[in-house]
């Protein structure tokens, strides 16, 4: 018999931790979808490796969420037993892989934000979040490097690769504003030094994006209208489909283990 979704208690720290864990899990899952399908063997391994890093980061954050909630749950419960409305990830990371350009632009836009974010989180007053950050920032550094190299190669490549890279950038751009969003519960954590003010990362993000896109001969989109909703569980239609695959086994065979 299928198993029902769990309902998670709502405290600022738990919500904050789960949102970031969801970002890492969903993007990691998206990258894992390339396994066996990437344009070349080296890239197949690169995408799987980066996916593994992200799922590992998600696991550390979910394990911490379990300690914070203290409701006797483990990391799997959050990953497998929350419904789509319970997920608080960015809309950007749930966007489909599309072509290779779309996957790399998505990775680039996210990594250019999350790499300095993890570095800033190393100074969090929350010792566990700071420790997870100290490990993750090493990984986000080479994720950013890898994605940047591909953005340049695709943008400054053939006419076709340039066209596709620009199209991917234009399509993903409206989802980037959400990375800088803060709600009242997060304001509290920022005041306590647990969380960081994302606005303080905006200038650096814009600079990285502008510099890599310039090398890639890609145009920074001028459209400033930004789509929001992911942090509060209002997702694009893509996340439900992703979760149905990610959660299928545990929903159909509750508690199944290897």
């Amino acid at each position: 018999m299928p198993v029902a979704s769990i309902s998670v208690s709502d405290t600022p720290l738990l919500r904050y931790t789960l949102r970031r864990a969801d970002d890492a899990l969903i993007l990691g899952h998206r990258l894992s979808e390339w396994c066996g399908h990437a344009p070349m063997l080296e890239e197949d391994m690169a995408l799987a490796n980066m996916g593994l890093d992200l799922i590992g980061q998600a696991r550390s954050l979910y394990a911490y969420a379990a300690r914070v909630e203290a409701a006797g749950r483990d990391e799997d419960a959050y990953a497998y037993l929350r419904d789509v409305r319970g997920y608080g990830n960015l809309l950007l990371v749930e966007q489909p892989n599309g072509d290779f350009a779309q996957t790399m632009l998505r990775q680039f836009l996210y990594s250019a934000f999350i790499d300095p974010w993890w570095r800033a989180m190393m100074d969090s007053t929350d010792a566990t979040l700071a420790a997870i950050a100290a490990k993750a920032e090493k990984e986000s550094a080479y994720h950013l490097r890898h994605a940047s190299e591909w953005v340049v190669r695709l943008g400054d490549g053939t006419q076709e690769s340039h066209r596709r890279a620009q199209a991917a950038l234009d399509a993903l751009w409206p989802f980037t504003g959400e990375m800088f969003e803060v709600d009242p519960s997060e304001r509290e954590l920022i005041a306590e030094g647990v969380a960081i003010e994302p606005e303080s990362l905006r200038a650096g993000w814009c600079e990285t994006v502008a510099s890599v896109l310039a090398q890639a001969t890609l145009a920074v989109p001028q459209n400033d209208w930004m789509q929001k909703g992911g942090r509060n569980g209002h997702h694009t239609e893509h996340l439900g489909h992703l979760l149905s695959e990610l959660q299928y086994l545990q929903r159909s065979f509750p508690g199944a283990v290897w």
Partner: peptide, 26 residues
Amino acid sequence: RRALFGAEEVACPQCGSLDTSRLAEF
């Protein structure tokens, strides 16, 4: 490791030469 498009100098474990190049980061 933070250089965005940086290069590392790695010695070949077979012959010790520093004239090496990266095929794939992963």
